[in-house]
Design a protein around this nucleic acid. Structure first.
Lengths: 209, 209
DNA sequence: TCCCCCGTGTAACAATTGTTACGACCTTCG
DNA sequence: CGAAGGTCGTAACAATTGTTACACGGGGGA
């Protein structure tokens, strides 16, 4: 286990001394697919780093509607939870396990001193911010500048890329929920994509071509 | 001038010693209304703090379409330019002066050392991130969960709040551009808001009631 | 003054998306 | 096996948004 964590963390560009600290101080957390990692009302005083698996970050509105924002893959961290914790605010989003995942949880107490001490940690944190800003902006692009069919196709490609598989195991209903539209609309548009030869459909499964 | 800058910076919660450094190292920049402050192809190795006036941040897509993201008011800074500069990347957004504004420009070279040195600067920077994340998420909410009429009304209220005036001096065409829709649609919806008694319209001017 | 440009109102129509309804099929479980 | 529930296809219609076209009036410049 220990070596496994080391291996992941090495790819983040963090310096060895810091990795030692992280390994000593953090704790392992396992989440199985479909479960919630962070929700708007959970306390949240730890910063998660994804060791394996895949998380997805969603935005929720007061009426319970949702939109998919982006995936968090191995080696990445949730930038939003950092600021949330620093400011002691409630999360305004929801993080779920898309696959069975293992996380390394670091208490927020250490954040400030690490930022002060380690140049590599500053780079890590600011890099995380940059990446998330970019993802949010891409989401805005997708929603503002494109129609639902393009948005859907981009979502499928994102999912293919994040899971590393050209097969997506989701129902039309689930996809509709992530794009905040209705099942009928998704079925209609997926049929269109199929006619264009971009995908192939099976029960509970979409194949990206 | 000197005292004016001090006064603004004091409200940011930065510690006196750091304010001294900022005042010594930065330079003043004046921008008149309508001019571009940061564009996707400008170099951008300075971090701006708004001293007076109002900036607006827009997202642009490759075809030249635009959307309004949020305003930057006095005492605030552009979080996205921080990460951009740290990573030496090109900006993926555009910042414009909504009113005649004065900015205090700080070379990025000092960022890292200040973050290391000043607790208050860390709080300032992370606070800026948090605020911008929230604004982006609100933009996403607005676009994903609401129809154009509500989006328009929220935009008017935001503008009222940012400018501190219940009169908005913009044409339907300009508003349409900021919401990435067409003039006709805005005229239609503004008429609706007027009928509901939420606004009053005049030439080149909208009054929020 | 007269003319032209700009800003706005409005109609008519097209395209996109949302909603409701229903039928077909598959899977699971009793 | 048969019933029940979940998944998908499709039609018909409503609501929202986008597009084109044209009329009206104000204000500024020649």
């Amino acid at each position: 286990m220990q070596e496994h964590i080391d291996a992941i963390l090495k790819n983040t560009g963090l310096e060895p001394k810091l990795i030692d600290e992280i390994v000593t101080i953090g704790r392992l957390k396992k989440v199985s697919a479909g479960n919630v990692v962070i929700s708007p009302d959970s306390p949240g005083n730890e910063m998660p780093i994804v060791l394996s698996g895949l998380l997805k970050v969603m935005r929720q509105d007061p009426d319970g509607n949702e939109v998919f924002l982006y995936y968090l893959e191995g080696g990445e961290t949730c930038a939003m939870s950092i600021t949330c914790c620093i400011e002691g605010r409630k999360a305004s989003y929801k993080v779920m396990a898309e696959e069975d995942s293992t996380l390394w949880m670091i208490p927020m107490t250490y954040m400030d001193s690490w930022i002060k001490k380690y140049e590599s940690f500053r780079r890590f944190v600011f890099g995380a911010y940059q990446t998330r800003f970019d993802e949010l902006l891409m989401t805005i692009d997708s929603v503002v500048f494109h129609k639902m069919d393009e948005r859907l196709y981009r979502y499928l490609l994102d999912t293919k890329q994040a899971t590393g598989s050209y097969e997506i195991h989701k129902t039309h209903e689930q996809i509709a929920n992530e794009l905040n539209t209705s099942r009928v609309v998704i079925s209609r548009l997926l049929k269109g994509l199929e006619r264009e030869g971009k995908i192939e459909q099976h029960r509970n499964k979409i194949e990206i071509l």
